[in-house]
Design a protein around this nucleic acid. Sequence first.
DNA 1: TAAAAATACTCCATAGGTATTTTAT
DNA 2: ATAAAATACCTATGGAGTATTTTTA
Lengths: 139, 139
Amino acid sequence: MDIRQLSYFVAVYEQGSISAAARQCCVAQPSLSAALRQLELELGVKLFVRLPKGVTPTEDGDKLYNHAGKLLGQLQSLKASFRTPVNRVQFRLGLIKALGVERMSALLREFSQQVDGLGAAFGRAGRALRCPDYYPATT
Amino acid sequence: MDIRQLSYFVAVYEQGSISAAARQCCVAQPSLSAALRQLELELGVKLFVRLPKGVTPTEDGDKLYNHAGKLLGQLQSLKASFRTPVNRVQFRLGLIKALGVERMSALLREFSQQVDGLGAAFGRAGRALRCPDYYPATT
DNA sequence: TAAAAATACTCCATAGGTATTTTAT
DNA sequence: ATAAAATACCTATGGAGTATTTTTA
């Protein structure tokens, strides 16, 4: 069990649908299905009943949701307590799809390295990630 | 930030040494060093001062330790609330090093699949992991 | 029967290992 | 001088993707 699985679970719980949660989390639907399966396997309980139109939590699902909410909340407060209140500077960043993921990613990496303090906000310059085409972000 | 990093951090904090914590967690010392570096990078603070004989927490290290303790505690209680209080059966399991990790791992996997309910206790039959030779478990 | 979930694969980022060098008192 | 931490490099596990099939009211 890890943070990732729990936050995916929460998203599914709140959306009432794995696909909708996938759109919200900007990951592919099978990734969420897999995470959910792991969680159910580890806990040894079914968390949702699968219906042809989404999912609904079981009693165990409800129970986990309460726990998970508190836990994720605490993680948030932990992060918040360390986030240095830097003086923020507004800027715009234009990106076009035609650039392609890899090149765009490289540009962003270079950019974030040149702007001092941005690295900390982003964490490390990440890998090239794209929101899956199949699941456009129409939350 | 994830559970793994936080529990490694706690181990280092409580042991006062990365190497000692590595022995305790049964992972190699560089793995802990890496996790710690990630955490410090993400939070943007130094968590320990490195001394020739172990490490001592900074003020930020102390702060994180309090948060992390609560968070890990909550995770524990979450797991506990789902751990079905099965009727436990005692048994012994003999293993010899000469078997080799892969074969031993395969045997354990087969074994845990045959014993009903053991899978849940183990989680999924794990990958072949070995406690590094260099860091024998002399906690 | 149609939308959602599950399955079957492929890929690559990264956790973890070994070996070695650097650090700090 | 020496024990601990950091660095360099490699392997392989598994998270995330795409494509497709299966499920269920």
